[in-house]
Structures are given as C-alpha cells and as structure tokens.
Simulated scan of single mutants.
Amino acid sequence: MSGVGSGDVGDSSGGGHGVRTGFVTQTHTGDVSWREAIEEGANLNFDFAELYMDGATERTKLDPEAVRSVADGEDIDLLVHLPFVDVEIGSPREGIREASREEQKACIETAAAMGAEKAVLHASSHATPPEWTREDVEPHLLAAIRELDAFGEEHGVKVCVENLPGILFTVHDFDRIFAETNAAMTFDTGHARVDGMDAEDMESFLTEHGDRISHIHVNDARGPSDEHVPTGSGTLDLETALAPVRDGWSGTVSVEVYSFDFDYLELSKRKLDEAL
C-alpha cells in the first residue's frame, strides 16, 4: 500500500483528520439556489457542500461574501466544482486556451473568497480527432493543470483533477498526471466504471494512489454509465470500492446525485455512511 495509509496530501488545512462527506450541488439549472443547497446540506449533517460554479451559479452570479457568511452560519465547509462545458484550457488555439485558463483562475479566486478549500477541475478539451490529435492537446492540458494547481496553492485552494469518462483524462491516463504535475486527484466512481473498472479495480486504484487522491465523487449507476442515481440505488459495490477509505485515508467524499429532491440526498448520505 503506497498511498492510503499515509493520509491525504490535500487536507492539511481542511479541518482535521479523517473522512468528511458532502454532496455536489445541482445549482447550475437554477432549480435549487446556492443558499438552499447549503442550508439543506447542513440540515442533513453533511460536512461540506460542493458548489457547482456554472449556469445559475457561475462566478459572476455569486456574492462570495454572502456565500461565505451563509456557510459559516450553517457551520458547513465549502468545496467548488469548476466550470467545464464551455471552457477550453487545452485548446490548440492559444487565445482560446489562455482565456479559458484566466476564467478558471477567476473562479479559483472567487472560491477562495467564499472560503472553499478544494476545486474540482475537468482537464478536458473539445479539440478531438480528426481535426486534432491527442498529441496536439495533451501537452496543453498538462501545462494547464500545473498552472492552475500552482495558482490554487497561492490562494489556499487545492485543485483536484477529476478522471473523465472516455475522454482525456480517463482514470487510465492519470499515471502521466501523477508523474508530470503535483496536482491532487478527484476520483469519480461512475467515470471509472465507464472506463472498465469494477469495485475491485477501484479498491486497488485507491490503495495504490491514495496519497494523490484528495477527493472522491461517489457517482452510482445501474451499469457502466455516468448516471448519478441516488447512492445505493445503483449496482456499485460501495463497501468494496471504498474499502481503502476506511483504512486510514483522510480526505473528502461527495455523493453526486442528479436530483433536486433532498430526500434522495438524505438517503444517499445514509448509504454512504454505512459504506464508510
């Protein structure tokens, strides 16, 4: 075991040892406000809310002082999920990628002002074959990871790169991220399933790379898909997949459930707590 027993490198400033649980907010559509998400998360005794910084809650629509005040008042921590749908941090076109990186930096600054401790990053690009090869894009993505990771460190926000389903960077590409950057990882269970991992494979990956994994998305599904059903209602063997988390790892774990009904989040928290 090279990683898990040594603890999470990402949590030295995150409020103590051990595993903390939270949820990815579904605020981007506007159906749930950031205030409601934070308040309901606190009511459900989550340790943190992972605020999605896109759509209705993209950075220019947030008042960082107000968000921080509500979170402090509810005694709940904050993480953020950086935007990804329309940003191109790995674009082969210099002007586009530079503007996208500047936008992500502005989001990290907003996250810091809100008191968020981690920021989930999709290191991805829509520049794909046949127009663009992996060799055209991957160096720019790695450079962006290094740049944003360093910027986050300057602002007290740990950038955690998420494995993506079927596109750069998948869970099978992370050896290069681990070797060529200092960034931490967000391990997404649903995305890992899309790319061929079963619960035993996840257990092995978490065991081997626990020292670089700071954050986990529990994304349950009924098969190898990016489905985000309520935790426990899919077919992921959570107890097996998360076994290393119970073995001395300290970090953060979000349930990622596509629902505006907080009853499903309550059930998801209970199922996650049982697995942990």
Rank of each mutant, 00 (worst) to 15 (best):
V120S: 06
V120E: 09
L121N: 09
L121V: 06
A123D: 07
S124D: 13
S124K: 12
S124E: 13
S125L: 06
A127Q: 01
T128L: 12
P129G: 12
P129Y: 00
P129Q: 10
E131R: 07
W132R: 00
V137K: 02
L141S: 09
A143M: 00
I145D: 06
E147H: 00
E147Q: 08
A150T: 07
E153S: 14
E154N: 06
H155R: 10
V157D: 11
V159N: 14
V161W: 08
L164A: 05
P165G: 04
P165Y: 00
G166Y: 00
L168C: 02
T170L: 02
H172S: 13
F178S: 13
E180D: 13
T181H: 04
N182Y: 10
N182S: 15
A184T: 15
M185V: 15
M185W: 12
T186R: 10
T189F: 01
T189M: 05
H191E: 06
H191K: 03
G196V: 03
D198Y: 01
D201M: 08
M202D: 12
S204N: 14
F205T: 13
T207I: 12
T207W: 11
T207S: 14
E208H: 07
H209P: 09
I216G: 09
V218G: 05
N219C: 09
D220N: 06
R222M: 15
G223Q: 09
G223N: 10
G223R: 07
G223M: 10
G223I: 08
P224I: 03
S225R: 04
D226Y: 03
E227Q: 08
H228M: 02
H228N: 03
V229R: 08
P230I: 05
P230F: 04
P230H: 05
T231K: 01
T235I: 13
L236E: 12
L238R: 09
L238C: 09
L238Y: 01
A241T: 13
A241K: 13
A241D: 12
A241G: 09
A241W: 11
A241F: 07
L242M: 08
A243R: 15
R246M: 01
G251I: 04
